[in-house]
């Protein structure tokens, strides 16, 4: 318990006494927000989850690969 408290204090004091670190953490926060709350949600869906459905991925990929072997990709 004492050790846990010491670890907590260590991080707490460290974060509180940051100067440049505050700016850097702010940038990291903004960056992670853009990546996970905007890009991932609106622009990067899981293609297989959307198109194949759970448990049918193998079948979907097999069909896709077969199709690719027969005809070129759409432009």
């Amino acid at each position: 318990m004492k050790l846990l408290r010491r670890i907590f204090r260590f991080y707490y004091d460290g974060f509180r006494s940051m100067t440049l670190g505050r700016t850097l953490w702010l940038i990291i926060g903004i960056k992670l927000f853009i990546m996970f709350a905007i890009l991932k949600v609106f622009f990067f869906p899981n293609f297989l989850k959307q198109n194949a459905g759970k448990g049918h991925e193998a079948e979907f990929v097999a069909t896709e690969l077969n199709k690719r072997a027969e005809q070129p990709l759409r432009p």
Partner: peptide, 23 residues
């Protein structure tokens, strides 16, 4: 700090653009 998570975007691309490969 600037480099943190820049590699994660590659994993987004795997799931969306390169799904056959990822599987």
């Amino acid at each position: 700090a600037m480099g943190v998570a820049t590699g994660i975007i590659l994993e987004f691309e795997f799931g969306t653009n390169w799904s056959n490969y990822s599987w």
